[in-house]
Every structure is written in structure tokens, then in C-alpha cells.
Design a protein around this nucleic acid. Sequence first.
DNA 1: AATTTGACGACCG
DNA 2: TCGGTCGCCAAAT
Length: 102
Amino acid sequence: MAAVFDEAYVEAVLAAVERIPPGQVASYGDLAEYVGIGGPRLVGRVMSTHGAGVPWWRVVRADGRPVRGLEQSALDRLQHEGCVLRGDRVDMSRSRWRPSLS
DNA sequence: AATTTGACGACCG
DNA sequence: TCGGTCGCCAAAT
């Protein structure tokens, strides 16, 4: 079967997501940059397809808005982890995690 | 094969 | 701060 996505790419994205510490978040663009391939949309597709099993709620949009369709769940989990929220948005300035900074 | 859509991002007014 | 527009990349229709 022709792999829908390169396994390496999927694994890299999922690994990066699992690296995100509790109370912090990362944007799709950051993950894409960290992996070094494609763009934010590609990461989003990987998440929608293989995102189960990883803390997907720590992956938010660049504007601080959580995952589409699961915003309420994501906000609830993030808030429970101690992430600083601003209304229905995440305070990126404080909670944004840089992959390379571990 | 062409157009639209999608777990997106940056820019502009 | 908010909304509209364009660009990006692969899958779905």
C-alpha cells in the first residue's frame, strides 16, 4: 500500500507533539518548521489522521485558538494543566513552546 | 483533470 | 482587536 504520508514525517510530528510540556502549547507552523517539511496544513492533516494518542489539545493555531471542532475540550484540558487562557483563546506570549528549546 | 475544502499563517485596512 | 484576502499543500469531491 502506498503510504498516505511518509511514516517518518508522521512520527516526527507526533513525537514533537508529545514533547510539548503540560501547560504549554505549540502552533502548527512551529511543528512544521521543527519537522522541516511542508507547512501548517500538512501538520494539521497529520494530526487529524494520526493525531489520536498524542496530546493534540496542546497544538493550537498561531492566533491562540484551539483545534477546530474540539475547542471546548482543548480549552478545558489546557486550563486544567495550568495553561494561561485569555477567554476562549490561549495566551501565546506566555504558553508558546519552542521545540528546539526542549 | 479541475475545483473545493481543511485540526493553517501572514499580511492588510 | 476584528475581519477580509492571499498563499500553501495534500486529500476529497
